[in-house]
Design a protein around this nucleic acid. Structure first.
Lengths: 352, 352
DNA sequence: CTGAAAGCGCTAACAG
DNA sequence: CTGTTAGCGCTTTCAG
């Protein structure tokens, strides 16, 4: 027999549906005796609440959507995992929406589920139009941007920010501290793209070290292993005297290491390579990748927390019918700072 | 203003909700004129259906759940992506449930969403109790096992099967064809565990080659890079004369390559390593991993198709009130055969 | 071809 | 403390 309904449980326990609902959610006081009776009935019948019905009645679904640009980039599954962990046992479920880097499918997802199937939306760098997101918000589904790269330059939306400029600076400084002077840069986005802040950090570090960062050989490339591979080949071919490669992300860094291997460079003896993020893969390749770890778990936790608050608040606002005018500026949380994780892909600059 | 409801659209178009519903789903014929009027109203108001309400009315949510044992194992995100692709534009959404290898959280997920929030469940090796799954089914949420390892030995549940014994055989044969005779085996599960079929394939190939497979040094280890790493160290320490390592999965194979590197073995010159599955990573490490590719996309596609059929059928059955007795035996789809993908981690056996 | 009406399973006031 | 009463937004017979 299919799942029993609340009403059947009620009948079984000799009470009304309202009472069952009350014990289920600990609202409206219920006598100890009846409570027990109800609980027994629930157990006996194997009752489980029908989530869509509840969502309809409450006007809000117990799910969050996570928009990611590519589930093929290992960072996103890791992030998704972190979000899932943050959600676990909260009664919320995660709907993963892979936009495949396409704003169009991203919009389609938002249109369909935001505010209906999912009570809120977490956005992890999915290539979404900021206007689409605003529209989503105005429809009652709060939006949180998950990995904003510039704490000092917040978007108009609630977000959790990571100081990626600092990450870039730390990575570059690591190279500089090891005595490297001729370092090439591989940027995993367009010059004005998502990795710009990281590159600025690099430039800052160079400048501080008295070098002309802008003169450092730089290539802008897709944020993939292949991108890093191609970029490194290009860089190394044109500037065989480079002793280190700064990379704005781990994936291209890994690609760069492969290119170095294919070209016969000994990493880290002849060439140091450093990445940013510290994805799991970074510690699983040989040589293990030196990188700047970014607080992924923390970011996910904060994002979930923020979104929860916004959802709760949206509920209240709706009730008060007070048009609380966007509750002031969109909140931005900043995670703790990224930190250097030196491993085996970096070493002192060769003295020669 | 929040999302308009069907009723408002109806009012706006001067018809009743029923009519709007009809045009929305192409049922019950509607006059061309009214249809246009309704469509216009929908567009004008920016109407979007409220999915939970629809789910409640229809008795079935437009989502499937995908249970995976670990989102940290890169195979699963890849598989999830394939499922997502198969679902795209079908109006179905994917809820990813990461059981973290824990049957308990797996059960919790099933309890909560199967049959309510999700209309069906895809299970990818999540460590789930078969009884829990049966119970889920009996509650009206069809279940499909996604990567069954033994086509000839189906479980009691609908599934899509991949001939992993054959995969093991192909991998082993590849090594044998290259002249290897002293090959060690790394199995990413308990002896009777999930990778047993792959190991059998290995043994079959050895036997066919006139070797005593059972005599091959073998270690059973967790299905992770680390597991493979440790296993390879152990194998290589105890049997320095091995010229090849057979591995039941890519992740341990990658770990084995790292161990080889750390131990100073030149892969593939001195030691060949072969894996199974062909995850993305396999082509992104150096040397690139020779492996036996398994039709992941195809499996995902079949699984989704099967689950869709079962969901549709469950709907019909419920209506006919005909207790169609599990519709005979649980259906099992078999994917096309795995195939060898030789890359750079295998080479001719060194001639002593 | 279109409208009226009865729920789907649950929640949330408000009464008693 | 518990029961009554309305819906939430949509689908779906069944009439007209």
């Amino acid at each position: 027999m299919p799942t029993p309904t609340l009403a059947e449980v009620a009948r079984h326990a000799g009470v009304t549906p309202a009472t069952v609902s009350n014990v289920l959610r600990g609202r409206g006081r219920v006598g100890e005796a009846t409570r027990e009776r109800v609980l027994a009935a629930i157990a006996a019948l194997g009752y489980r609440p029908h989530l869509p019905a509840r969502a309809l009645a409450e006007g809000r679904a117990p799910t969050m959507a996570l928009m990611v640009p590519s589930i093929a980039n290992p960072f996103y599954p890791e992030f998704a995992l972190a979000v899932e962990n943050a959600l676990r046992n909260s009664g919320q479920f995660l709907i993963i929406c892979n936009t495949d880097g396409d704003p169009h499918t991203g919009r389609a997802y938002l249109e369909q589920i935001a505010g209906t199937l999912s009570g809120g939306v977490l956005v992890a760098n999915a290539n979404l139009d900021i206007d689409d997101l605003r529209r989503t918000e105005s429809r009652g589904a709060p939006v949180v941007l998950c990995m904003w790269e510039r704490p000092l330059d917040p978007p108009g939306l609630p977000c959790v920010a990571v100081d990626f400029r600092l990450a870039g600076e730390l990575a570059a400084r690591h190279l500089l501290d090891l005595g490297h002077r001729r370092v090439g840069a591989i940027v995993g986005s367009k010059a004005t793209g998502i990795h710009a802040a990281r590159y600025e950090g690099f430039l800052d570090a160079m400048r501080t070290a008295g070098l002309d960062g802008a003169a450092a050989p730089t290539v802008f490339t897709p944020d993939t292993t292949q991108g890093g591979y191609a970029a490194a080949r290009e860089l190394l071919a044109r500037h065989p005297d480079l002793t280190a490669l700064f990379t704005t992300n781990d994936l291209p860094a890994l690609g760069a290491m492969q290119a170095a291997a294919d070209l016969g460079f000994d990493v880290p003896r002849q060439l140091s390579v450093v990445g940013i993020t510290d994805i799991q893969l970074a510690r699983e390749t040989r040589p293990a990748l030196s990188t700047v770890a970014v607080p992924t778990e923390e970011a996910a936790g904060l994002a979930v927390k923020l979104l929860r608050e916004l959802i709760a608040q949206a509920g209240r606002v709706a009730k008060d019918a007070k048009d609380t005018k966007a509750a002031g500026a969109a909140k931005v949380c900043v995670t703790s700072a990224p930190r250097l994780v030196p491993r085996a892909s970096t070493a002192r600059a060769p003295t020669a």
